[in-house]
Design a protein around this nucleic acid. Structure first.
Lengths: 240, 240
DNA sequence: AGTAGTGATCTGTGATCACATGTTGTTAAC
DNA sequence: GTTAACAACATGTGATCACAGATCACTACT
């Protein structure tokens, strides 16, 4: 049957295009927390009418990836330290669960994909001048390759929604880090990446051995390590 | 300062009103999974223009509480058994975490509120003809009173989003149960509620003792019990 | 009787206008 | 020089229209 050969091919709307564009801008850290948007200006920038932008922004605010401010403003949400800590602990629970399931259910193809992404991450990091944007992308792919191996699509959706909220903070800092930070902090930044490398290694080792507990610990340390780095970098808001 | 006394009082838009209405319709189980909507008809039914309905439905689809079907249709999502099982296991992890935190952080006022809701649930159930809608509401309030005591507002948001997806299934079944089911199943239904009563009792006992592990077990059993009831009731779709 | 064709109708999507409400920048009064 | 008043502009919200695509009911032809 032809039905089994072709993909359903849902039709693409302009709103969806705009949504994807804005989402990618947010996730890659190209928009600063607190930065404001307006319907008409982004519509003009994207060369579309305001209608698709309205729907895209409406959707992003529904996902808490954008925020409707008090005076008819739309902005990238700020995050307090305590909120960020909370997100990190939720990530440990939720992504830890996914990792645990992945340990039990993954097959050789999953593992091969994960290892390939890991060595790609390695290779980029060993460059004399590593590309931050690329590292962000590979890191994301690596994590989601693991979570996808859990065989739990709904869980995957939830984790994606989480990343959409935490990603802008994480990646804005990583992106602006090399320009903004003191030389001392650049060293910190580099050791943080080195640490990430180590944690990935531990994580993959545990996955190979199908040792769920060890994998969860490695993931927990990875998340906590990144969290402490972000907190010390000063991107976050002090209190509520 | 006056600032600390009054609530920010965000202004209400028509879109928000429509959103809240539709959300409540969904959560209370008054819309059947698979049921279709149209912008114009619901706009006419709510006596508003299509614009607010568009935004409300757009938002609900972003939260996966509604679904954009293939032929320009909007419908209440169906759920497969495996999806429902997955949601239940995620709920056990996420709500278990919230319960654990609540054990550590809750105070007397939290506990008093929780116990009050529990006995309210009891009282309603002991009626000769218990009001299903009321039981649904009290049950929800009870669970969220516990999760709120965790002191983790972001976690609370995530759990709310989860309930928005699972609620329609759970509550549609509960609501239509008394009319749809065989007499034999009505008995099942009643014993299920009796069981819920018992699990609530266990859960509260554990909370009082601040025994996180016992509380998590009680919650897990409660969720699994409800899940098995729903699965056996035939509301769900068989396969993918 | 059954089927292909065809016009009417309904669908979500997108564009454009109207409006109330803020914000900002300039002017005028003291 | 400072401040109050006001005009110009920008904002999100809502209404309305246009349109392409799908569905449906009915007709006409075999």
């Amino acid at each position: 049957m032809i039905n089994e050969l072709v993909t359903p091919l849902q039709r693409q709307t302009l709103s969806m295009d705009v949504y994807e564009q804005l989402k990618q801008l947010l996730m890659s850290g190209k928009m600063m927390p607190g930065q404001q948007l307006s319907l008409r200006s982004t519509a003009e920038a994207l060369n579309v009418s305001v209608m698709p932008v309205r729907e895209a922004i409406q959707r992003l605010t529904a996902e808490n990836a954008l925020e409707l401010g008090p005076r008819r403003t739309i902005r990238v949400p700020m995050m307090t330290i305590s909120q960020f800590r909370e997100f990190s602990s939720i990530r440990i629970v939720l992504e830890g669960f996914a990792t645990e399931q992945a340990c039990a259910r993954m097959n050789k193809r999953h593992l091969a994909k994960i290892e390939a992404l890991s060595s790609e991450f390695n290779r980029e990091l060993e460059q004399s001048n590593p590309d931050g944007t690329k590292l962000i992308g590979i890191n994301e792919d690596l994590h989601f390759a693991i979570y996808r191996a859990s065989g739990m699509p709904m869980l995957l959706q939830l984790i994606e929604a989480l990343w959409l909220r935490v990603g802008p903070i994480l990646n804005y800092d990583l992106r602006s880090g090399s320009k903004r930070l003191e030389p001392k902090s650049i060293v910190d930044h580099h050791t943080r990446l080195e640490n990430t490398l180590g944690h990935h290694g531990q994580l993959i080792k545990a996955l190979k051995a199908r040792d769920a507990e060890m994998a969860k610990v490695a993931l927990k340390i990875d998340i906590e390590n990144a969290a402490e780095f972000i907190i010390s970098s000063g991107t976050l808001v002090a209190s509520d």
